[in-house]
């Protein structure tokens, strides 16, 4: 099938997660008035980063395994 879909999913969520984390670290906390005072960018960014990392890991592991 060529491309394992877990690789692009992992990459994309990794990039999006990293962007949200970085933005969450530098952005003015005043923007979190909407989100009940929580820095959701940082929190959710970390969650996406973890998800992306897991997807990428499983995609790579499957790619390396000998094909049957």
């Amino acid at each position: 099938m060529g491309l394992d879909i877990r690789l692009p999913i992992g990459l994309m969520f990794g990039v999006l997660g990293a962007m949200l984390v970085a933005y969450g670290l530098v952005a003015d906390p005043a923007i979190y008035q909407r989100s009940l005072g929580l820095n959701v960018n940082l929190g959710w960014g970390l969650a996406l980063l973890a998800f992306g990392g897991a997807m990428f890991h499983f995609g790579r592991r499957a790619g390396k395994a000998p094909t049957t």
């Binding site: 949200l20 952005a27 923007i31 979190y32 909407r34 989100s35 009940l36 959701v40 960018n41 959710w44």
Partner: peptide
């Protein structure tokens, strides 16, 4: 618009 700050709003 009500809940998401810039960043998550884009998502």
């Amino acid at each position: 618009l009500h809940y998401l700050p810039p960043g998550l709003l884009g998502l």
